[in-house]
Write a protein that binds this DNA or RNA. Structure first.
Length: 543
RNA sequence: GGUGGGUUCGUAUAACGGCUAGUACUCAAGAUUUUCAUUCUUGCAAUAGGAGUUCGAUUCUCCUACCCACUACCA
């Protein structure tokens, strides 16, 4: 039994999206579980679609997820160019392997499994249009190739002349007729396809001296001794071609096994997940932020949105695979242990952004207070807040279960660092940020001036309305003045004050909002003196 | 159009051919709390439709419907 070797072979035509990361992840998990190698190969055989930066993006995205290739373009932070003991098959970029492919393409022509075609793009387009006009589908196969210009129909000397004179010819696979290709997929089971429905795919292009995906893929998988090909479902239709190619080369015995993963679908409606969905519905589809070099357009990333890499990996793993148990939280090593292709579903999975957030929330709670503090400190610094790490850590411990992302901490607890009087300066409106102050009913009210948000800022009109009553405030102020923070609750109770109303009134003064942390918790961090100052400020503002 | 793949609560999924079709997210209600959140409890909600095989079908077979992918000198 040979060593398990799988590969992830993306095309650098843009940023890798989460479906691609999932494919890489499943390959990685499979390899590690079997004690094998995970290889990263770059399939850049289409020079027209090359996007600068895309390859680096792919490498960075995988690293962020904790997926490190054993072999391939990226090895421990360095780009591999030359073959070495660890990277015997370098280079791993197909554009740098072009000499290899021509040899194999010509081998197929010699053995009769392929031929040279001289049709121009215009001629093919014309043939397609004609077929369409007759209500038929143009298939470039044994039926149509006899009427086209190629090394099968032209005399040998004519072929020789064209090969030398022209630079736009291609090598096409000679799809056999009347055969049924029987295949087994690790996920989908047995599949059979009649070759009559398949066409003579282009394998190699003279114009840029490069193979197409199909040839490069088979040759490289063979040369790199790949044992399992785990890829997206979009490749299923070309599986028969790939089987036939292995056969044509005589490589059936070492042919890898195939597993075609279900697609990631958009959260609502039909169709596969696309970049647009994320922008429209407010979730990232890319692991990392990406700015397109052509358009300058930026797409958000999970990393920048505040997702933890292990949470991202976890949620991705559960999209299409399940452990068969009720466990949902898995670390990467646990996934390596539990993963199996048998448990991968056949149908496409609709991505659920709510569930994605839930995963992050779970991971955030599992993080230690000190770790979260280290992440929160830079955010505070950005806000111009200087606070002792110990102080911040106490706050983090208190608020972490109210948050989904670390950046939520500031919105949740900003008032522990700055007084409501400063909120305007920070562009923070405690409570609902989208509160619409314009209310026609208020305009008629004699106290409208007080209730107007601009005048009462940072207190929201609706909160003032609800919690600021002069007699309540008087009681609240008395309690704050007379009692120590720890004894506040007792004081209010002992003096027969309405607990809920008084507490909420105090909270409004302390935090500028009608909801949030417990009063005693707030006072523990800001102190009695600051608490009183905020009470006075509210009185001044609203009294 | 052709070829291939798919179909269990709204979503992700579980269920050797065999109890009342389970779980998580979302949503709703209740309890707790000084408010909010958390937590806990409860609830809503599914085998696409039709035949067949079988004592018995979510599971196996066929048909229909719907969805998806592919149908490039792109991957």
């Amino acid at each position: 039994m040979s060593k398990t070797r799988v590969r992830f072979a993306p095309s650098p035509t843009g940023p890798l999206h989460m479906g691609g990361v999932r494919t890489a992840l499943y390959n990685y998990l499979y390899a590690k579980q079997h004690g094998g190698d995970f290889i990263l190969r770059i399939e850049d055989t289409d020079s027209n679609r090359f996007v600068p930066g895309a390859e680096q993006y792919i490498i960075e995205a995988l690293r962020w997820c904790g997926i490190y290739p054993d072999e391939g373009v990226d090895a421990d932070g360095k780009i591999v160019e030359e073959p070495s003991e660890r990277h015997p098959h370098a280079p791993y970029r197909q554009s740098q392997r072009r000499v290899i492919y021509r040899k194999y393409a010509e081998q197929l022509v010699r053995s009769g499994h392929a031929y040279c075609a001289f049709d121009t793009a215009e001629e093919l387009e014309k043939a397609r249009a004609e077929a369409e006009g007759r209500g038929e589908t143009f298939i470039y196969n044994h039926l149509s190739r006899t009427g086209l210009r190629n090394s099968l129909t032209l005399p040998a000397d004519e072929v020789q002349r064209l090969l030398e004179e022209r630079t736009d010819w291609t090598i096409r696979f000679r799809m056999p007729e009347g055969r049924t290709v029987a295949m087994d997929d690790l996920i989908r089971g047995h599949i059979e396809v009649d070759t009559a429905t398949l066409d003579d795919k282009v394998l190699w292009k003279r114009a840029d001296e490069l193979p197409t995906y199909h040839l490069a893929n088979i040759v490289d998988d063979h040369l790199m001794e790949i044992t399992e090909v785990i890829r997206g479902e979009e490749w299923l239709p070309s599986l028969p071609l790939h089987f036939l190619l292995y056969e044509a080369f005589g490589w059936q015995d070492s042919q890898p096994r195939f597993a075609h993963l279900p697609l990631l679908l958009k959260p609502v409606g039909n169709g596969k997940l696309s970049k647009r969905d994320g922008d429209k519905m407010g979730f990232p589809v890319f692991p990392l932020r990406w700015t397109s070099p052509e358009t300058g357009e930026t797409s958000r990333g999970y990393r920048e949105d505040g997702y933890f890499p292990d949470a991202f990996v976890n949620l991705l793993a559960m999209l299409g695979w399940n452990p068969g148990t009720e466990q949902e939280i898995f670390s990467l090593p646990e996934l390596v242990e539990a993963f199996s292709l048998e448990k991968v579903g056949k149908s496409g999975s609709k991505f659920n952004p709510d569930k994605a957030k839930w995963f992050n929330k779970e991971y955030l709670r599992m993080r230690s207070d000190s770790e979260l503090t280290a992440l929160f400190l830079p955010i505070l610094q950005e806000k111009g807040i200087e606070a002792a790490p110990g102080f911040v850590e106490g706050i983090v411990g208190l608020i972490k279960e109210r948050a989904t992302f670390v950046q939520d901490f500031w919105t949740i607890a900003s008032y522990l660092f700055i007084a409501p009087s400063q909120f305007a300066d920070y562009g923070v409106k405690a409570g609902a940020a989208s509160e619409k102050p314009a209310d026609p009913k208020r305009a008629a009210d004699p106290r409208a001036k007080v209730w107007d948000d601009a005048a009462t800022a940072p207190f929201l009109a609706k909160d003032v309305d609800k919690f600021y009553k002069p007699e309540i405030f008087a009681a609240a102020l008395e309690a704050m003045e007379q009692a120590e923070p720890e004894g506040l609750e007792d004081y209010i109770r002992d003096h027969g004050m309405p607990m809920g109303k008084v507490m909420n009134c105090i909270r409004l003064a302390l935090s500028g909002a009608s909801s949030g942390l417990g009063i005693s918790d707030i006072l523990r961090f800001i102190g009695k003196e600051e608490g009183l100052a905020r009470m006075h400020y509210m009185q001044e503002r609203l009294g």
